[in-house]
Simulated assay, not measured.
Amino acid sequence: MDMQAITEALRAKVGQDSGLGAVLKFDCGEDGVAVIDGKNVPNSVSNADCEADCTVAITRDNLAALVSGALNPMNGFMMGKFKVSGDMSVAMKLSRVV
């Protein structure tokens, strides 16, 4: 799954209001970023790099697995599949989105 497909899948999952109340960025390094702006309603999902309340450093393949449901957010974190920086309370709401 490429970043555009991941972004579209995230957009479909987020809908009008994700309940995040914050900006969450998935940073896939050289593959790019996917940013969920949950501060504004309707929420938006883009690939524009910006400041975020919480950043998830993750590979594109692991993000695709997360979005598709093949990777559980809590298990992924515990197994070291991604690292979280910033506001951990936002990361805890991740299961609402993916």
Rank of each mutant, 00 (worst) to 15 (best):
D53Y: 02
V33D: 06
D61Y: 10
G69Y: 04
S18D: 04
D61P: 04
A91S: 02
P42K: 11
K13P: 02
L20N: 01
L63C: 02
R11P: 06
L24A: 10
M79E: 15
Q4G: 04
L66C: 03
T7H: 07
I58M: 06
C54D: 09
D27Q: 08
L10D: 09
V14T: 09
I58N: 03
V56R: 00
S44P: 00
G86T: 02
E30R: 15
M74V: 14
V98I: 13
S18M: 09
A9W: 01
G76A: 10
D27Y: 02
G80E: 09
Q16W: 04
V41D: 10
I58L: 11
N75Q: 14
P42F: 11
K13Y: 02
F77A: 09
K83Y: 00
G80N: 02
D87Y: 07
M79A: 15
G86M: 06
C28E: 11
V67N: 02
A65M: 11
G76S: 04
M88R: 08
M1I: 10
D27S: 12
S89W: 04
V98M: 08
I58D: 01
S89F: 07
A48H: 00
E51S: 15
L10N: 00
T59I: 12
P73W: 06
S46T: 15
D17P: 06
F82M: 13
A52L: 12
D53W: 00
K13G: 03
A65G: 10
A70H: 01
A48N: 09
M74S: 11
M78R: 13
G69K: 05
S95L: 10
D87M: 13
M3H: 03
D61C: 07
A48E: 15
G21L: 11
E30V: 14
A70G: 02
E30T: 14
G76K: 07
V23M: 13
A9G: 07
I36F: 06
A5M: 12
A52K: 04
M92L: 15
N72Q: 10
D49K: 10
N40D: 12
E30L: 11
E51Q: 14
V33M: 07
A65D: 14
I36D: 01
V97C: 07
A52E: 09
N72A: 11
L66R: 04
N43C: 13
S18G: 00
D87E: 14
S18A: 01
K93T: 07
K13H: 06
N72M: 13
N75I: 15
P42G: 06
G86V: 01
F26N: 10
F77N: 09
L94E: 02
E30A: 15
A22Q: 03
C50G: 11
S68G: 15
A12T: 11
T7Y: 07
G19N: 08
S18H: 02
A5I: 11
G86K: 06
G76Q: 02
G69E: 07
V35G: 00
T7N: 04
G69S: 07
G15Q: 08
I6M: 03
K83Q: 15
L24W: 05
A9L: 13
G19C: 07
P42C: 11
G80H: 01
E51L: 15
V90G: 08
A91D: 05
T7D: 10
D49M: 07
L94G: 01
F26C: 09
Q4M: 14
F82P: 00
G38Y: 04
V67S: 05
V90C: 08
G15D: 05
K81I: 07
G69C: 11
K83I: 05
A64Q: 03
